[in-house]
Simulated scan of single mutants.
Amino acid sequence: MAHTPLTTPPLTPQFCLNQRALRDFLRLSRATIDDNIIQNLNALIVPSRTPFNPSSTSARSTTTSPPLKSPIDPPACENFKSSILFPSWESRSDVLNYCAAVALNPADPDLALAKAESAKERERVVDERLDPYSGRFFPREARTEVLGGLVRNERSVERIVRGRTWGLVQERCGEGSGEGWEEALDKWREEQERR
């Protein structure tokens, strides 16, 4: 049985600024659906209805062709995509979009502190003969700047993960339409809006 997507956590600035919580949600969501996509798709295959015949193993096959993968029933594929895969992707997109907006927040108190520290450090007079390391100033990045970098990295990871997952879904579901995951996800979103 395929796993169900994780529910989207309550979206608050504190959630986004807690890098561990944000990364854990994204990691667990990917692990549940995308990292186990082959197992999830295999769970959609209906087992054989004919009873096992032991005589089928008495002769060895000499054909060298690779074994065919069992095709997945198209309605089962559609159901998996619309009820598990796309909602999981949408949930992660919602979190990343919200956190990207938090990262653009100019009212971050850390940002004001970093600017004040930077101005103070530029005015400081240093005698590097007495302390050669005192001339070095490493400004702290504001939490929102760190969050912005994290969101950019996670969006890159999402593109890679979704591309890989979508390729496997198309291969196993027999959909060679050439439609990319972006187009398929956009169509699903449009269907959700109509409901």
Rank of each mutant, 00 (worst) to 15 (best):
P5N: 01
P5L: 01
P5H: 00
P9F: 03
L11N: 13
T12V: 06
R20C: 10
A21M: 11
D24G: 01
L26S: 09
L28P: 00
L28A: 11
S29Y: 09
S29E: 06
T32F: 06
I33G: 05
D34F: 04
D35I: 01
I38R: 09
Q39L: 03
A43V: 04
I45E: 07
P47Q: 14
S48A: 15
F52E: 14
P54I: 12
A59F: 04
R60F: 15
S61M: 11
T64K: 06
S65A: 10
S65W: 04
K69L: 10
P71R: 07
P75R: 01
K81L: 08
S82D: 08
F86V: 07
P87I: 00
E90R: 03
S91K: 00
S91Q: 03
S91W: 00
S93M: 02
L96R: 05
L96K: 02
L96P: 04
N97H: 06
C99Y: 01
A103P: 00
A103W: 08
N105E: 11
D108A: 08
A112G: 02
A114P: 13
A114I: 14
E117I: 12
E117Y: 08
A119F: 01
E121Q: 13
E123G: 07
V125G: 10
D127Y: 10
E128G: 06
R129E: 14
S134I: 07
G135T: 11
F137Y: 12
P139N: 14
P139T: 04
E141L: 15
R143Q: 03
E145N: 06
V146E: 03
V151D: 08
E154G: 06
R155W: 07
R155H: 07
R155N: 11
S156F: 05
S156K: 04
E158R: 03
V161A: 13
V161T: 10
R164H: 13
G167P: 01
V169A: 03
E171N: 05
R172F: 04
R172G: 04
C173S: 05
G174S: 14
E175M: 03
E183M: 11
L185T: 07
K187H: 02
R189H: 03
E190N: 09
E190I: 07
